[in-house]
Computed example of a mutant assay.
Amino acid sequence: MAQIAVNDSRARQMIREGATIAGVVYSCHPTPEGYTGPGCAPALRIQSENRTVDFLVDEEKGIVVETVTEITSNSGFPGE
């Protein structure tokens, strides 16, 4: 499963830019009514300085079917 995700050009680009593989997870994300994509799937989690990206994989098809990105900030907002 991880190899499928690492073969994705977006994952390779993140790794080239210094991101690290955090592990394999089962990733779920909110979906709107009528959504036809996967709401949950096994995923490779890659973390960089300010974002975490889950590359959701369809193991039968051997492809990344979706990415879920969480943006984090290293600097707090004023007043935090």
Rank of each mutant, 00 (worst) to 15 (best):
A2I: 06
I4N: 04
I4H: 06
I4V: 15
A5R: 07
A5I: 03
V6M: 15
D8W: 05
D8I: 02
S9Q: 15
A11G: 10
R12K: 15
Q13K: 13
Q13W: 03
Q13H: 07
Q13L: 09
M14R: 13
M14Q: 12
I15T: 04
I15D: 04
R16E: 13
R16A: 13
E17S: 13
E17W: 02
E17A: 11
A19G: 08
A19Y: 06
T20Q: 14
I21T: 11
I21W: 10
I21F: 09
I21Y: 10
I21G: 08
A22E: 13
A22Q: 11
G23F: 12
V24Y: 03
V25S: 04
Y26F: 12
S27D: 08
S27W: 03
C28H: 06
P30V: 03
P30H: 05
T31Y: 07
T31G: 07
P32Y: 08
P32D: 10
E33H: 10
E33L: 11
G34Y: 09
G34H: 10
G34L: 10
G34I: 12
Y35L: 08
T36N: 07
T36S: 13
G37A: 04
P38Q: 02
G39A: 15
G39D: 12
G39H: 09
G39F: 00
C40Y: 05
C40W: 08
C40A: 09
A41L: 01
P42S: 10
A43N: 01
L44T: 04
R45A: 01
I46A: 03
Q47S: 05
E49M: 10
N50E: 14
N50V: 11
R51W: 01
V53S: 08
V53Q: 10
F55K: 03
L56D: 02
V57K: 00
V57N: 02
E59C: 00
E60M: 11
G62C: 03
I63T: 15
I63D: 05
V64K: 02
V65Y: 06
V65L: 07
E66P: 00
T67H: 05
T67P: 00
V68C: 05
T69H: 05
T69E: 14
E70C: 01
T72M: 07
T72F: 05
S75Y: 08
F77Q: 13
F77V: 14
P78L: 10
G79D: 08
E80S: 14
E80C: 05
E80Y: 12
E80F: 10
E80K: 06
